[in-house]
Amino acid sequence: MENAIEVDRLTKRYREVLAVDDLSFTVRPGRVTGFLGPNGAGKTTTLRVLLGLVSASSGRATIGGQRYRSLGHPLREVGASLEATSFHPGRTARDHLRVQATAGGVPQARVRLVLEQVGLTAAADRRVGGYSLGMRQRLGLAAALLGDPGVLVLDEPINGLDPEGIRWVRELLRALAAEGRTVLVSSHVLSEVEQAVDELVVIDRGRSVYQGPIGGLVAARPRVVVDAAQPAQRPELAAALAAYTVGERADGALLVDGIDAGEAGRIAFGAGIPLGHLAAEAQGLEGGFLELIRGVES
């Protein structure tokens, strides 16, 4: 598929450490795909293999069916931002982009445009050494957008941004995907990106633990907090919900998994137990995400 990112049975071993373990996934154009996992899960290694910076131990990672190293003008096809720190502190933002444009065969006129797009025009002629982390993130995004590429690969682009910056990046990601581009964005915190992504690839310890629409992550694990109106009826309630109970909260309320709040209410009603509390767990998505990762750990 044109512009699709394909990771196919990718494995990367660093001496004793298995950083990426038989990982496969596909990222399609026209939507934002979140690449999630805790720190050290292998996200950055996967992206670095995809971008030709790190060699795979086995398997392959391609963009539009081609390895990054065989792309004729990579900056015009793939825009990547990997670390907010990889700039020469003595060089200005504008000069950094000019060097990249020269090396990548991108017209110099694009430099002014992307600086404007990320809101760095006023600071463009200052040395990057004096930039805040947020400004470096913006410069990284400017560099990724430089060649007007159809594919974007962004590693933790939200790290270090203020709330306004976070909202801006989310909107930018949405807009880029709406233009039909392939957008892969990694993060170790789901809540950072959940409002911007359509699809998820979740990995842990180099292995895939979830792939699919973001809705699927929470639907697969609805967790509900239930408590009886009378503490005396708690054992009765626990017996009625025994098949779905996964734990107990510190205040004695039950944690129920696998059914939604309505179903839990119907079961309690059927058993004749008045409820004092019935609520879907507030951090449902993040909870599902953490559950996935913890699930692998245990």
């Binding site: 030709g52 990997l82 090396a103």
Partner: peptide, 18 residues
């Protein structure tokens, strides 16, 4: 060596992976 020290080797190799 400046490219190794400042981490600019990454953008350099992104622009020219060969």
């Amino acid at each position: 060596t400046a490219e190794h020290r400042t981490g600019t080797l990454t953008p350099t190799l992104l622009a020219q992976p060969r």
